[in-house]
Amino acid sequence: MIESIVSYGLAVGAVYALIGITYNVMFSASRVFSFTAGMLGMLGGVLGALFIGKLGLPTIVGFVLVLACGAVLGVITEIVAVRPVLKSIEQHLYVLSTLAFALLIQQFTAIEWGTEAQPFPRLIPISSGWFDQQFWLPLLACAATIVGLELLYRRTLVGRAFLAIAEDSYAARALGLPEQRLRLASFALAGIIGALAGFTGGEMLLAFFGNQAILSFYGFVPVALGGMGSNRGAVIGGLALGLFQQAANFLVGGIFAAVAVFVVFIAVLLLRPEGLAGAAASRRV
């Protein structure tokens, strides 16, 4: 039992962590929390099942196509739902526009793909053990993403430009950084990460349009716990959440697990709104 709690818990946790990172990457570039993070995760599963399972494309081709679709959707999100409302960010219209866009895609998926959960193909033709590929793939994806982002931010000028915009977009603009193009690029990057989460977690979570709401919420919990913009917080929070959920599921049942996560979420929001590791924000007069 303990193995399945750990393996399943860590794997689900890695998917949550990746969705949390997806939120963060979009937030850093635009100060916008976008509801499309869960949508990207959902689509990673559905598109993977479509390309590899239904259309029979080779795994690697299907994988690349899924990530490409994620990037394209990220770009469309920025153009359709974020850029038009950035000017009046204090009105929070982005909450509505990104929600509407995410719902559009979700409903389209429900209609074209169906509302039933469908199986996701096995990606690597090896036999399963207690620590199966459906468990280690999300963890591998999560580790690769963290390493990749770290290399991007620390080793490339583009990555530093992302950090600069996240810290002070006004100063970045004054320096002549192409803010709009960089924002677009980070939405594409977020699209790739979100799709990767859904793709590697596909076998476990299945190709199901309803994953969107679940991933939107459980992917946001680690961000709220770890502090917005903090990828380290998202990973620790995501893995902890996954383990806790599975342990509670096994030990005391699903009702308790669901309610406990919600109670912890609300309690942290009320007691430490800046996240367990974040710093307090300042006033606005």
Binding site: S216, G254, F262, I266
Partner: peptide, 30 residues
């Protein structure tokens, strides 16, 4: 509604979304 008293909009939206997800899960399980 409690999170709305202190926090920015998106958190409250998330809290209500989480609440509706969880109520359905509980309804299924109980």
């Amino acid at each position: 509604g409690l999170p709305a008293l202190r926090l920015r909009t998106f958190y409250f939206a998330m809290a209500t979304l989480g609440f509706s997800t969880i109520v359905t899960q509980v309804a299924l399980a109980w």
